[in-house]
Amino acid sequence: MNDSQGILWEVFIQSKPGQPHKHAGSVHAHDNEMALQNARDLYCRRSEGTNLWVVPASEIVASSPEDIGSFFEPSNDKVYRHPTFYNVPEGITHM
């Protein structure tokens, strides 16, 4: 007898057309279709969304929190990527 609860899926909800999908939580399901239906039943009981993504949790690749420094550091010393790095003569607007 297989008493498995299915695999874990991460659920992402788009609240309105045009908005990005946002992580809502997880569900258990055995296949794609069931994952979508379970996610709808669990996370959208009060019209929370217009679109749903479900992704097997094991398929998500995440950066590791311990490497937060070295991983994101390369952007820290490139202040010239920000507009405030540049001097503009006094009185110039709309730039």
Binding site: M1, N2, D3, S4, Q5, G6, A29, H30, D31, M34
Partner: peptide, 16 residues
């Protein structure tokens, strides 16, 4: 509810 989980599993395996 065991039969539901079994059936869901069998269905997913068949589809795969």
């Amino acid at each position: 509810g065991a039969w539901v989980r079994e059936a869901a599993n069998a269905h997913a395996e068949k589809n795969n």
